[in-house]
Protein backbone atom coordinates (compact mmCIF):
# COMPACT_ATOMS: atom_id res chain seq x y z
CA UNK A 1 0.00 0.00 0.00
CA UNK A 2 1.26 3.44 -0.88
CA UNK A 3 1.57 5.75 2.03
CA UNK A 4 -1.32 8.14 2.22
CA UNK A 5 -0.57 11.54 3.69
CA UNK A 6 -3.32 13.11 5.72
CA UNK A 7 -3.80 16.51 7.27
CA UNK A 8 -5.31 16.24 10.72
CA UNK A 9 -7.82 18.94 11.60
CA UNK A 10 -10.09 19.61 14.53
CA UNK A 11 -13.63 20.35 13.38
CA UNK A 12 -16.22 21.05 16.06
CA UNK A 13 -14.03 19.31 18.59
CA UNK A 14 -13.66 16.12 16.53
CA UNK A 15 -10.50 14.86 14.93
CA UNK A 16 -10.89 14.85 11.17
CA UNK A 17 -8.57 14.14 8.29
CA UNK A 18 -8.24 15.51 4.79
CA UNK A 19 -6.17 13.89 2.11
CA UNK A 20 -3.00 15.93 1.76
CA UNK A 21 -3.40 15.71 -1.99
CA UNK A 22 -6.55 17.81 -1.72
CA UNK A 23 -4.93 20.53 0.36
CA UNK A 24 -3.00 23.01 -1.71
CA UNK A 25 -1.64 25.06 1.12
CA UNK A 26 -2.31 26.35 4.58
CA UNK A 27 -2.63 30.11 4.81
CA UNK A 28 -2.98 32.71 7.48
CA UNK A 29 -6.51 34.01 7.08
CA UNK A 30 -6.48 37.71 6.33
CA UNK A 31 -9.49 39.97 6.22
CA UNK A 32 -12.63 38.12 5.19
CA UNK A 33 -15.16 40.01 3.12
CA UNK A 34 -18.60 38.75 4.08
CA UNK A 35 -20.98 37.79 1.28
CA UNK A 36 -24.45 39.07 2.12
CA UNK A 37 -27.37 36.74 1.48
CA UNK A 38 -25.19 33.70 1.02
CA UNK A 39 -25.64 30.48 3.01
CA UNK A 40 -24.58 30.81 6.63
CA UNK A 41 -21.72 28.35 6.21
CA UNK A 42 -20.01 30.66 3.74
CA UNK A 43 -17.97 32.97 5.90
CA UNK A 44 -17.08 35.22 3.01
CA UNK A 45 -14.35 35.65 0.48
CA UNK A 46 -10.72 36.40 1.08
CA UNK A 47 -7.75 37.00 -1.14
CA UNK A 48 -4.83 34.67 -1.52
CA UNK A 49 -2.52 36.90 -3.45
CA UNK A 50 -4.47 37.73 -6.59
CA UNK A 51 -6.90 34.90 -6.19
CA UNK A 52 -10.23 35.10 -4.43
CA UNK A 53 -11.01 32.22 -2.09
CA UNK A 54 -14.40 31.31 -0.78
CA UNK A 55 -14.10 30.89 2.96
CA UNK A 56 -16.09 27.97 4.33
CA UNK A 57 -16.87 27.56 7.99
CA UNK A 58 -16.58 23.78 8.21
CA UNK A 59 -18.63 23.50 11.42
CA UNK A 60 -21.59 25.11 9.72
CA UNK A 61 -20.99 23.38 6.39
CA UNK A 62 -21.44 20.08 8.19
CA UNK A 63 -24.72 21.40 9.51
CA UNK A 64 -23.89 21.43 13.17
CA UNK A 65 -25.76 23.73 15.47
CA UNK A 66 -23.79 26.74 16.63
CA UNK A 67 -21.27 25.90 19.26
CA UNK A 68 -18.46 27.54 21.08
CA UNK A 69 -15.59 26.38 18.94
CA UNK A 70 -12.27 28.11 18.69
CA UNK A 71 -11.20 29.08 15.18
CA UNK A 72 -7.67 28.62 13.97
CA UNK A 73 -5.97 31.67 12.51
CA UNK A 74 -4.89 29.45 9.66
CA UNK A 75 -7.07 27.91 7.01
CA UNK A 76 -6.58 24.99 4.66
CA UNK A 77 -6.84 25.90 0.99
CA UNK A 78 -8.49 23.29 -1.21
CA UNK A 79 -9.60 23.26 -4.83
CA UNK A 80 -12.77 21.62 -5.98
CA UNK A 81 -14.50 21.92 -9.34
CA UNK A 82 -12.15 24.67 -10.47
CA UNK A 83 -12.88 26.89 -7.48
CA UNK A 84 -10.64 27.46 -4.51
CA UNK A 85 -11.85 27.43 -0.95
CA UNK A 86 -10.33 28.25 2.41
CA UNK A 87 -11.59 25.99 5.17
CA UNK A 88 -12.08 27.47 8.61
CA UNK A 89 -11.61 24.86 11.31
CA UNK A 90 -10.98 24.69 15.07
CA UNK A 91 -7.36 23.88 14.51
CA UNK A 92 -4.91 22.45 12.01
CA UNK A 93 -2.87 19.92 13.91
CA UNK A 94 -0.53 17.77 11.97
CA UNK A 95 0.40 15.92 8.84
CA UNK A 96 0.48 12.20 9.27
CA UNK A 97 0.31 8.91 7.43
CA UNK A 98 -2.78 6.82 7.10
CA UNK A 99 -2.47 3.44 8.72
CA UNK A 100 -5.17 1.74 6.71
CA UNK A 101 -8.19 2.31 4.51
CA UNK A 102 -11.22 4.31 5.51
CA UNK A 103 -13.89 2.10 6.98
CA UNK A 104 -17.31 2.36 8.49
CA UNK A 105 -18.06 1.87 12.15
CA UNK A 106 -21.22 0.20 13.41
CA UNK A 107 -23.86 2.78 14.20
CA UNK A 108 -22.46 5.42 11.83
CA UNK A 109 -21.30 8.86 12.80
CA UNK A 110 -24.61 10.68 13.09
CA UNK A 111 -26.60 12.17 10.23
CA UNK A 112 -24.60 15.35 9.76
CA UNK A 113 -21.24 13.69 10.07
CA UNK A 114 -22.14 10.73 7.89
CA UNK A 115 -22.96 13.07 5.04
CA UNK A 116 -19.46 14.53 4.95
CA UNK A 117 -17.47 11.51 6.05
CA UNK A 118 -15.91 8.86 3.85
CA UNK A 119 -15.33 6.79 6.94
CA UNK A 120 -13.07 6.29 9.89
CA UNK A 121 -9.39 6.09 9.16
CA UNK A 122 -6.61 4.96 11.45
CA UNK A 123 -3.66 7.32 11.47
CA UNK A 124 -0.42 7.62 13.36
CA UNK A 125 -2.20 10.25 15.46
CA UNK A 126 -5.10 7.96 16.24
CA UNK A 127 -8.46 7.41 14.53
CA UNK A 128 -9.88 10.29 12.51
CA UNK A 129 -12.90 10.93 10.37
CA UNK A 130 -11.88 11.15 6.70
CA UNK A 131 -13.74 14.07 5.17
CA UNK A 132 -15.45 13.87 1.76
CA UNK A 133 -14.49 17.24 0.35
CA UNK A 134 -17.20 17.65 -2.33
CA UNK A 135 -19.86 16.68 0.19
CA UNK A 136 -18.53 19.16 2.70
CA UNK A 137 -18.45 21.94 0.12
CA UNK A 138 -21.98 21.19 -1.04
CA UNK A 139 -23.22 22.48 2.30
CA UNK A 140 -25.83 21.15 4.66
CA UNK A 141 -28.73 22.04 2.34
CA UNK A 142 -27.61 19.50 -0.23
CA UNK A 143 -28.72 16.47 1.73
CA UNK A 144 -31.29 17.95 4.00
CA UNK A 145 -34.24 16.32 2.21
CA UNK A 146 -32.60 12.91 2.49
CA UNK A 147 -31.89 13.38 6.13
CA UNK A 148 -35.42 14.45 6.73
CA UNK A 149 -36.74 11.52 4.75
CA UNK A 150 -34.58 9.18 6.77
CA UNK A 151 -35.73 10.69 10.03
Amino acid sequence: MTEKLLIILQIAGRRCALSALDVRSVIETGAITPVPRSPIWIAGITALRSQALTVIDCRRAIGLPDGEWPTDHRAAVVTEGGHSYALLVDGIEDITIAAGEAGQVPGGFGAEWSRVALGMIETMAGPALLIDLPALLAGPEAHRPEIEAAA
Binding site: R37, P39, T54, H83, G139
Partner: peptide, 11 residues
Amino acid sequence: VKPLAPAVMRS
Protein backbone atom coordinates in the same frame (compact mmCIF):
# COMPACT_ATOMS: atom_id res chain seq x y z
CA VAL B 1 -13.62 39.65 -12.76
CA LYS B 2 -13.22 36.07 -11.65
CA PRO B 3 -15.91 33.49 -11.10
CA LEU B 4 -17.31 32.71 -7.68
CA ALA B 5 -17.91 29.36 -6.07
CA PRO B 6 -21.27 27.81 -7.04
CA ALA B 7 -22.64 28.06 -3.51
CA VAL B 8 -22.15 31.82 -3.63
CA MET B 9 -23.47 32.15 -7.16
CA ARG B 10 -26.69 30.47 -6.11
CA SER B 11 -27.77 33.57 -4.22
